[in-house]
Design a protein around this nucleic acid. Structure first.
Length: 1069
RNA sequence: GGGCCCGUAGCUUAGCCUGGCUGGAGCGACCGUCUUAUAAGCGGUAGGUCGACGGUUCAAAUCCGUCCGGGCCCA
């Protein structure tokens, strides 16, 4: 869409392939041009582009960032029914995979097996979810704004697809027409004006526009591919296609017949460089602060009196003074006559006196505006020449005194109010500018000067003639062309209008039915805009756009053509084959006026490209000329774009739906804020702080980027940088990947089979995890159903946290070979089940990570498309919720925290066991809860006490947690001697484990250990030698009091005044 | 000049609609800690006029008003 890439460079990477012309008459069934077929076939090739078919992606290749930037044209990448090429070879050795390697692997799998095409395949008969992709401006390079709204759309579309719904439609879309594209071509050929374009050749110019669009589309498609944004790009709609244009014509004809499309001569914002008027919503995109003259000019009254009187008139546009025809005053405003030292008298509003005479003025008379009505004056320049009624003071209520002098200079060509007043007074118009905003011969003084450049010359002339009272410069906000950044001017011009002002109440009413996210937009920014809706200036004096299908005969009868068939009929001849309904081809066609029979010529306009994009819901189906699922009664269920589209696509969609079908355009509207850099500044190429989507995706992978957008509040302006992405993705996605990696490694070949189903979990920890899993699934479902994506993300974050820091932490021994077989199986199947369930529930959010988990934990290892999570349905309830259990576990975890605090206060490290923890008056923890608590804080037993009597726990022997007089728990200050020795053994074991790790030993590898120590430590170790050996997988573990001597495999440790040394050796074999 | 949004610890923020528990949490800092998944986890410490002022109320981060600051949009 047009609004997307304001301020971005348009110098996209140019690819050598020319744009094949796809244009043909609608009856034409010839195959597509070669180029797009080639592009398609390319991607049909199995495996990643750089690999021969069917080979495994080697590790190093997976670590390399996916290729971006200049490269071969990829073309549409979602090919339906792609072939499967067998499985990918064995899994990586060990350790958690990086996001980038996950992404590369999953992407290759999808493209090899055609999963995306199958996932988005049409499902006739299924419940429908109506959506339309806002057509992307096929121009310039994608930026972060494109990226984020595509993430939001993709999440919702995936969710609804998983629910079994039929997405109407899943087509991608390209906004092909309009100034952005034209500017690109102008730049490429150094064209400076419309005249030069005409000399260049309009047909050739349009042809270049067309191919430029096709080239730019490739970059956007690549971004979507890397992001995992699944739409049907192969059949993407394009606003320049003949069928699309015919649908737009049909809609314009409908409006024309209803009297809602009319020609007028009104003052409109006008870009002198582009030589075309702009619509108010385009102007809205281009305001910025600038410096302008602020001048006050003397307008001498023509009067029959000895004392000269002069009106003071203020303006910020001196260049409009040569077009002055009237001065407006207000009847009920009081004006003062101020006598100057030289005897001349000045008139200005009394309210303006402080601004002009801060130190007081010699006011000789006061009068009201009405007394001045009809007074004549000498104009600042005499260019327009005399005519009846000119150069008079007229009265108008639009005059204000908050700024200026209370006298308003009226140039009917150059302002909406001016035009109205001029028309009322019948003084005609006078426009001394040509189409480029350059003064013509009628003002010799500034002939040939662009309007702004005339200011200094005109001011100097006024000063020379003593007519300039005051000249200053002000900073104020002024509109500039949103595309070429030229200062706009307001001028009267012929234009075709869509009469939106006649539908204001319906626009407002329809908007009230929309679910806006964030909600405040409905009645706030967007709602306000609707209530002041002005007529939509539709026509553009340009080349590359949908031609306005209106022909006018010399008598002024206008004929609006609503289809190609009608055009042929009115032409009395078949249309040329192939027919390209763009300028030149269409301009050539002269109709016979149906009213008077005279030849009629087409109005030489194109239409606002925003009208094209607002027609997308029906025009993408070539409605009403081709059969399709579109229904005039049904609004879209969902659209999502950036906040800038409140004045862009959201608006044009609503206007067109209202005028054409008298219904809202969409039911829900998800809107994201702008992306700022890390210090809160706007991103722009010129500032060098812009982040390119493709490089971002290459560096971090799609899911970390997606996750970041979902985790921050995307409805407000977002600060975003690399650290933001690193942090938010490491925290949740990184943790999740590590949980999976741990599970896979610990389970090894004993990974539960994929068909295992819901485990019959008996243990509290397992049941707790499943209960939490189901709660999470339900929260995600609720969030996505209400378009509250942040709610879904928060639920995932909290679950992953619990999964990692509590379930896995407490289950590590169970998951390894250390526990009994049944418990081990229970833990593994529970974890597998939870990971697979979670993966399905987060598939819409992080499709790559989700797919990887399902493939690896599910055991299908990227073998077939059938196993893809994205072809599975949205999960129903995954387990029983058990609120009491969740609450009990909360209590256990609270007590763990308390226990740790008590340990810290007692100064006893966790690895030194203590005899007991006494807990008071808490929930029933159950046997398992008690065991978890005891294990986690390393006490031999938990004692539950109901007598909260502090005196039983003297401070000399106990540390006590006391919450405002209520005892929670008590812990002995010191271990018993035996426990202390246990602790010492732990110290030794911990250090030797560390040593094992340093030596790079795997868990199951056995070692031989010679351990030398004396005294207290030897005493502690001797009786615990067997346990120690088992734990360290040491065969043998030899204890000695002889020094071990030196050697590279001997290490010595000291702690708490004790020391030992050990020789740890890997056992051969 | 108008409209909308935002303002809570150095940073990111929850809580505000529907007033009441000691204003929670994450990052960062510091001290300590964890028998080997993690850029991790855990305990503790420091860090808050909840933008300012006024009002309503027994009670205000929360409701109302005014103002200040920032952002976006419009004129």
């Amino acid at each position: 869409m047009g609004g997307g890439d304001r301020g971005e460079d348009r110098g996209g990477v140019r690819r050598a392939r020319g744009g094949g012309c796809r244009v043909r008459a609608r009856s034409d069934d010839r195959p597509r041009p070669r180029e797009s077929r080639d592009a398609g076939r390319r991607d049909r090739r199995p495996g990643p582009p750089d690999e021969p078919p069917g080979t495994r992606v080697p590790e190093p290749a997976a670590r390399r960032p996916p290729s971006v930037g200049p490269g071969p044209l990829r073309g549409p990448f979602f090919i339906r029914g792609g072939t499967s090429q067998g499985r990918m070879g064995p899994e990586e050795e060990s350790g958690a995979p990086s996001d980038a390697s996950v992404q590369a692997k999953v992407l290759a799998y999808w493209e090899r097996t055609g999963v995306p095409g199958r996932a988005i395949a049409d499902r006739p008969g299924a419940p429908e979810f109506w959506f339309t992709e806002g057509p992307m401006t096929a121009n310039g390079a994608p930026h972060l704004g494109h990226l984020i709204s595509r993430v939001l759309k993709d999440v919702e579309l995936r969710y609804h697809r998983m629910r079994g719904e039929r997405i109407v439609s899943s087509l991608g879309g390209w906004d092909c027409h309009g100034l952005p594209v034209e500017l690109e071509i102008e730049k490429r050929h150094g064209l400076k004006s419309k005249k030069e374009i005409e000399a260049f050749g309009v047909e050739r110019f349009c042809e270049e526009c067309r191919s430029s669009v096709l080239e730019a589309a490739a970059q956007f498609t690549e971004m979507s591919r890397q992001l995992g944004f699944w739409l049907d790009y192969e059949h993407a709609y394009r606003t320049m296609d003949p069928g699309y244009i015919e649908s737009v014509w049909w809609s314009l004809r409908t409006l024309f017949d209803r009297g809602l499309l009319e020609k007028g001569h009104y003052v409109l914002p006008y870009c002198p460089r582009c030589e075309t008027p702009l619509s108010s919503h385009e102007v809205a995109q281009g305001y910025r602060e600038t410096s302008d003259p602020s001048v006050t000019v003397r307008f001498p009254l023509v009067r029959d009196a000895p004392i000269a009187r002069e009106l003071l008139v203020w303006t910020t546009t001196p260049w409009t003074l040569p077009a002055n025809l009237l001065v407006a005053a207000r009847a009920d405003v009081e004006y003062s006559v101020v006598r100057e030292d030289d005897g001349r008298e000045l008139l200005l509003a009394s309210a303006a006196l402080p601004r002009y005479f801060p130190h007081g003025a010699n006011v000789v008379e006061r009068l009201h505006g009405r007394a001045l009505a009809g007074a004549t004056y000498r104009p600042p320049f005499d260019t327009p020449g005399p005519a009846p009624g000119r150069y008079r003071v007229v009265l108008d209520d639009s005059v204000v005194t908050a700024e200026g002098t209370g006298f308003v200079h009226i140039a009917p060509s150059f302002g909406p109010e001016d035009q109205r007043i001029g028309a009322r007074e019948g003084v005609g118009v006078f426009d001394p500018l040509d189409g480029r905003g350059v003064f013509t011969d009628v003002v010799p003084l500034v002939r040939g000067r662009p309007f702004k450049a005339a200011d200094p010359v005109l001011l100097r002339d006024l000063a020379d003639r003593g007519r300039l009272y005051r000249s200053e410069t002000i900073r104020h906000v002024y509109p500039f062309c949103w595309r070429c950044d030229t200062a706009l001017l307001y001028r009267a011009i012929d234009s075709w209008f869509v009469r939106t002002s006649r539908a204001t109440d319906r626009l407002v009413r329809h908007n009230e039915t929309v679910r806006w996210v964030p909600e405040h937009l409905r009645d706030g920014r967007f709602g306000n805009f609707l209530t002041e809706a002005k007529d939509w200036a539709l026509s553009r004096n340009r080349f590359w756009g949908t031609p306005l299908p209106i022909w006018v005969c010399p008598d002024g009868h206008a004929t609006c053509v609503g289809s190609f068939a009608e055009l042929a009929e009115r032409l009395g001849a078949p249309l040329p084959e192939p027919f390209d309904p763009h300028r030149v081809a269409v301009d050539r066609l002269a109709l016979r006026c149906p009213t008077c029979g005279q030849p009629a010529r087409r109005e030489p306009y194109t239409i606002d490209a925003w009208y094209d994009s607002g027609s997308a819901p029906f025009a993408q189906y070539h409605h009403p000329f081709a059969p399709g699922p579109f229904s005039p009664e049904r609004p879209l269920d969902f659209v999502a774009e950036g906040i800038d589209q409140t004045r862009g696509w959201y608006y044009s969609l609503l206007v067109i739906a209202t005028l054409l079908f008298d219904r809202p355009a969409y039911r829900a509207c998800l809107t994201n804020g702008h992306v700022l850099d890390e210090s809160g500044r706007k991103m722009s190429k010129s500032k060098g702080n812009a982040i390119e989507p493709l490089s971002l995706l290459a560096r971090f992978g799609a899911d970390p980027v997606r996750w970041t957008f979902l985790s921050i509040d995307f409805t407000e302006p977002m600060r975003l940088g690399e650290t933001t992405i690193q942090r938010s993705s490491a925290r949740t996605l990184g943790t999740l990947l590590n949980v999976v990696a741990f599970h896979l490694e610990a389970a090894g070949t004993e990974l539960p089979p994929p068909s295992a189903g819901r485990p019959a979990a008996r243990g509290a920890l397992d049941r707790w995890l499943l209960s939490r899993l189901e709660g999470t699934r339900a929260d995600i479902e609720a969030g996505l159903s209400r378009y509250e994506l942040g709610v879904a993300a928060a639920a995932v974050r909290s679950f992953v946290d619990d999964l990692s820091t509590w379930y896995l932490r407490r289950s590590r021994p169970r998951l390894r070979a250390e526990s009994d077989a049944e418990d081990r199986r229970a833990a593994r199947s529970t974890l597998s089940y939870a990971l697979l369930g979670l993966a399905r529930a987060i598939a819409p959010l992080v499709p790559f990570t989700s797919e990887w988990i399902v493939q690896e934990v599910g055991g299908s290892h990227f073998a077939s498309p059938e196993s893809s999570v994205h072809l599975s349905g949205w999960p129903g309830p995954l387990a029983e919720r058990d609120p009491a259990l969740e609450e009990g576990m909360r209590e256990v975890r609270d007590l763990v925290e308390i226990g740790r605090e008590l340990r810290q206060r007692a100064g006893v490290k966790s690895r030194v066991p203590l005899a007991e923890l006494v807990v008071f008056d808490t929930l029933e923890l159950g046997e398992e809860g008690t065991a978890l608590l005891a294990a986690e804080i390393n006490v031999r037993r938990i004692v539950r006490s109901t007598s909260a009597d502090q005196s039983s726990y003297p401070e000399s022997d106990w540390v006590v947690r006391d919450d405002g007089g209520v005892l929670r728990a008590a812990l002995p200050r010191r271990p018993t001697e035996e426990l202390r020795q246990d602790g010492l053994a732990r110290e030794v074991a911990r250090r030797l484990q560390q040593r094992r790790k340093e030596l790079g030993l795997r868990y199951e590898e056995t070692v031989s250990i010679d351990l030398s120590t004396t005294g207290e430590l030897a005493e502690a170790l001797a009786p615990r030698r067997e346990d120690l050996a088992r734990e360290l997988l040491a065969e043998p573990l030899r204890l000695t009091d002889e020094p071990l001597g030196a050697g590279p495999d001997v290490a010595t440790w000291e702690f708490e005044g004790l020391s030992f040394s050990a020789r740890v050796r890997r056992r051969a074999g």
